[in-house]
Simulated assay, not measured.
Amino acid sequence: MHPSPTLSRTRGNLALLALFLATFVLGSTELVIVGVLDLIATDTAVTVSSAGTLVTAYALGLCLGGPALTAATIRLPRRTLLWACMLAFLLATLAMTVTTSFALLLLARAVAGALHGAFVGAAFAAVGAILPAERLGRGIAVVLGGIAVSTAMGVPLGTLIGRTLGWRGAFMVIVAVGAVVLAGLLLLMPAIHASAGGEAAGLRSQARSAFAPRVLVMLAVGVLLLGGQFTVFTYITPFLLEVTGISDAQVSGFLLAYGVATAIGTFAGGWAADRNASRTLLAANIVLVLALGLLYLTGTIPVLAAVALLVWGLVGFGLVPALQYQVATLAGPARDLAASLPASAVNAGIAVGALLGGWALTGSGLSAVVIVGLLMCLVCVPLTWLTAQWTAR
């Protein structure tokens, strides 16, 4: 897919802004539920642990439903797919606010997750049509940046609204903001057709390229790197409280600093991916190992723990634009079909990491949680180096 020769830089930037705002809405919807789980549990007469399956349902919908929807809609124009996914996503989220059945709530979350995955895949494909190749990494970072900023800002604000107006009120506010974003997509996104490869080749041929061994290895890198991080991050609050020994109020400050570093790192990672995606991914992997090692060795010292969190935040999601870039490069003519796969790998890693972290915590305590996450990222270094050889430029 090549940028349209008639698309001005200003129009392209406005289209990127619309995509950024859209992924901000998606990210806020995905994660704000964590801050209101107890309210949902009380309202629907289930336990908090049962309410937690709403997080799992969304992640599974994204991992499995996202690629499936992408494959089913591979011949649709990207602009059409973007607004259709956003509209359906808002309807699924709205359904959450009106149902009293936990089963229907679970179903709505799974559907929303699948639409989230399909939207992100279409957004990455759209970026390839809007921007020239030398700015592709920065465009990918803008799309991911909406999710990163939602983590740092949207989720805390949404949680505050949810604790004030109720959990349904939080999601209704998200739907209202999403409706404005949908209008922006309709107004600002140019007409973008499916890639030439997607039109000319059948789905079976596309799948062979999208799931080629080299692409699968790159996706395994994503699972390991995000899995290693979320093995630790899932339990970072008890680690800071019990190992680092800081107060509840200080934990919020530490996590806010981490969130801001994550947002900055995502945009910086896009710029670095444009310069050399393979080296960016390898360097980020190595720095991530060092940051987690520092957290393990000096986690009892608040200042050094804060430094470790900041460095971790900068590279932890800063590597995702390079991962997305590498998958698109390795998938070749099937890049539209492969576009949603890194998001699936990232969410699979998050799910696996949370599970491994729980096992480590139960068996050996908080220090073991950091060791397991560190080892996952360390094991990934040879794989990242190998993939760098494939796409060296």
Score class of each variant (00 low, 15 high):
Trp271Lys: 14
Val34Trp: 07
Val346His: 07
Ala84Trp: 12
Val289Phe: 02
Phe102Val: 08
Val217Glu: 05
Thr151Ala: 02
Ala277Leu: 09
Ala277Met: 13
Ala152Val: 15
Ala110Thr: 15
Phe24Tyr: 02
Leu386Thr: 04
Val287Arg: 03
Ala339Pro: 04
Ala343Asp: 13
Leu226Gln: 10
Cys377Arg: 10
Phe211Trp: 14
Phe102Ile: 08
Ala388Met: 13
Ser252Ala: 15
Pro321Asn: 11
Arg393Met: 12
Ala272His: 09
Ser367Asn: 14
Val251Ser: 01
Phe89Met: 08
Leu290Ala: 14
Thr300Arg: 15
Thr93Asp: 06
Thr99Ala: 01
Val55Trp: 04
Leu292Gln: 09
Arg11Met: 13
Gly358Trp: 07
Ala15His: 00
Val307Ser: 05
Val111Glu: 03
Phe119Asp: 00
Thr97Tyr: 06
Ala268Asn: 05
Leu309Met: 15
Ser340Asp: 02
Val55Ile: 15
Leu310Cys: 11
Val327Ile: 09
Thr151Asn: 06
Pro342Met: 02
Val142Tyr: 04
Phe119Gln: 01
Pro190Phe: 03
Gly270Ile: 11
Ala354His: 10
Asp336Gln: 12
Leu106Met: 15
Phe124Met: 09
Pro333Leu: 02
Ser364Thr: 15
Trp312Leu: 07
Thr262Phe: 08
Glu199Lys: 13
Ser8Trp: 00
Val55Ser: 01
Asn285Ile: 02
Leu182Ala: 06
Ile140Cys: 03
Ala57Lys: 15
Tyr235Asp: 09
Val311Met: 06
Asn276His: 15
Ala22Lys: 02
Ile371Ser: 02
Pro342His: 05
Ala308Ile: 07
Tyr296Ser: 14
Thr47Ile: 07
Met1Asp: 11
Ile236His: 02
Ala84Glu: 06
Val173Cys: 13
Leu76Ile: 11
